[in-house]
């Protein structure tokens, strides 16, 4: 495929579209009512140009073209088309300029929120959060967007999607040592899913995570929390997670680093602990006196 040819064609289309926009703003164009049609044609031309830029892998130019189309749609009061164009612009910019992508996605979110389409707005908040966590590594901002998405989802009674966002927030909060917030989130999600016949099997996982956060803050708190979770959700008592927590508490009370490591090893031999769990367990282990400081 001839990418340079496509790019030239796209540039030509952009120039033609610009001319149409200018002529639609002229006195005669306004007089004879052709301005409206010209702007619509220009919109279409910008979109075609943007798609050609995409084929040529010129992401910045594609994003710019979609942005121009979006502004014209706004001028024509086509809110939905405007938002769609901003989303397309954001997706194009994602590959080249994350900051611009975020601006475009935010513009689309504002439009969708104004239209009352909160589910779609939430979805794009998640997109922004993902850009922040992967491209720009700004976890605080990612957390803010996940929280906003969760709020929107809750408002639309999409509890499952809201919980997914909250769990992301919880995981990042624990990593950033904001344990109290993480505990609140995990307890809230655990309580939500506990009574749901489809989701109740995941409750023990959330209570386990909350307990680990409690453990880092204070051992006594952890003990009380575990008892509370066992009362709330009796199935938690029989779970491997609960048994591990009790062994860890015992090892911590005795300040026995070996017993702690053995308990973790035993659990890990059945189901491998992920990076999040490993990090938190290591933090707990480091609180045991006379520790070498690794999970062996």
């Amino acid at each position: 495929m001839d990418t340079s040819g496509k790019e030239k064609e796209a540039i030509q289309l952009m120039a033609d579209a610009d001319k149409k926009v200018k002529s639609s703003g002229s006195f005669l164009g306004g007089m004879f009512g052709g301005g409206h049609h010209k702007v619509e044609d220009a919109c279409e031309m910008y979109c075609r140009a943007a798609n050609m830029f995409k084929m040529a892998k010129n992401w910045n130019a594609a994003g710019g073209a979609f942005c121009k189309a979006a502004r014209l749609h706004m001028q024509l009061q086509n809110k939905h088309d405007c938002a769609v164009s901003f989303i397309d612009a954001g997706n194009a910019y994602k590959k080249a300029d994350p900051n611009e992508a975020i601006k475009c996605l935010n513009a689309a979110i504002d439009i969708y929120a104004d239209m009352g389409r909160f589910t779609i707005a939430a979805k794009h908040h998640i997109n922004i959060a993902e850009i922040y966590e992967s491209e720009m590594v700004d976890i605080e901002k990612a957390i803010a967007h996940y929280e906003q998405a969760a709020d929107y989802y809750k408002g639309e009674e999409s509890n499952s999607s809201a919980n997914k966002c909250l769990l992301k927030v919880g995981a990042y909060c624990a990593q950033l040592e904001q344990y109290q917030k993480a505990i609140e989130i995990y307890e809230q999600v655990g309580a939500n899913v506990m009574d749901n016949p489809l989701l109740k099997y995941s409750a023990k996982e959330y209570f386990f995570k909350a307990s680990l956060c409690h453990f880092i803050v204070d051992e006594l708190n952890a003990k009380i929390a575990i008892e509370k979770y066992e009362e709330m959700f009796p199935a938690f008592s029989d779970s491997r997670e609960c048994k591990l927590l009790k062994k860890l508490l015992e090892a911590h009370e005795e300040q026995n680093s070996e017993a702690f490591t053995d308990a973790v090893k035993e659990f890990d031999s059945i189901s491998r602990l992920d990076q999040w769990h490993t990090t938190l367990l290591l933090r707990i282990k480091k609180t045991i006196q006379g520790d070498e400081g690794d999970l062996k």
Binding site: T119, E157, S160, L198, L199, Y201, I270, S271
Partner: peptide, 28 residues
């Protein structure tokens, strides 16, 4: 066998979670 059972349980949890979110989407 126990390891497989635990893995199966985890996969099952994910499937149930996905089913629940799909259900919400369908209802919407």
């Amino acid at each position: 066998g126990y390891q497989i059972a635990v893995e199966t349980e985890q996969v099952g949890q994910e499937i149930l979670s996905n089913l629940h979110s799909d259900r919400e989407k369908i209802q919407r």
